[in-house]
């Protein structure tokens, strides 16, 4: 059975890269009023074939636990799950939104995936994972870094527009998170931030 699985990995200690990105976007670029939170994930999305969806997820779970190219349990938290299909990010399952400030406007989260244009690194991940799997075959692999960009925006389209302006480096004064000469991006998910009780 063909199954699409997503692996989300983030640091369980302070993420200095995300902190530096936050500082740069809010203090050196002009997003101090609109950027409300920033989280960075390593991200893999793979289509795999196995006896059942559950068997695929279980086998991949065992494999990624053992391989530091995917997870290192000394420093990472991860979530592995079957998804409805490519790009089916689900903001509602995320347990924390590190929102730095409140203020006016509705908060929306944009999950922006940054990938290299060359496919070789994704193929290498597929091969590496495949070596650890016996009854499951990796059919395709997407790998990159997801930036969860939380912004104050009136609607999803405005939120995506803001996130792309923060991400895509067009000039010295525009964009930070990817260089379009060798990287590309896709929007994995966008939607309102669901504030839980106890959130600031």
């Amino acid at each position: 059975m063909k199954t699409v699985v997503e692996l989300w990995v983030r640091l369980k200690v302070v993420d200095l890269v995300a902190g530096t990105a936050w500082m740069t976007l809010t203090e050196k670029l002009d997003f101090g009023d609109s950027l409300r939170g920033l989280v960075r994930y390593s991200y893999w999305r793979m289509e795999a074939e196995g006896a059942s969806a559950g068997a695929v997820v279980d086998a991949i779970d065992r494999a990624v636990r053992l391989d530091s190219a995917f997870t290192n349990q000394n420093k990472h938290l991860y979530r592995l799950r079957e998804t409805g299909g490519a790009g089916a990010g689900d903001l509602a399952v995320e347990e924390d939104y590190p929102v730095r400030a409140t203020g006016g406007g509705e908060l929306r989260a944009v999950d922006l995936l940054v990938r290299e244009k060359r496919p070789e690194s994704e193929a290498a991940y597929a091969a590496r994972l495949g070596e650890r799997l016996e009854d499951v075959r990796i059919l395709s692999m997407t790998a990159g870094e997801v930036w969860r960009i939380i912004v104050s925006a009136a609607d999803d389209a405005a939120a995506v527009g803001l996130a792309e302006r923060m991400a895509v480096t067009r000039s010295r004064r525009e964009g930070l998170l990817l260089n379009p000469h060798y990287q590309r991006h896709e929007i994995v998910a966008v939607g309102p931030v669901v504030r839980k009780e106890g959130d600031r």
């Binding site: 890269v17 010295r172 004064r173």
Partner: peptide, 22 residues
């Protein structure tokens, strides 16, 4: 610079000193 965070050179490129160097 900045431990190559995000991408080598990109954070330093936004520093104020680069206005003057430019």
């Amino acid at each position: 610079s900045y431990q190559d965070r995000i991408r080598a050179g990109v954070v330093a490129a936004k520093d104020r000193v680069m206005d003057t160097i430019g």
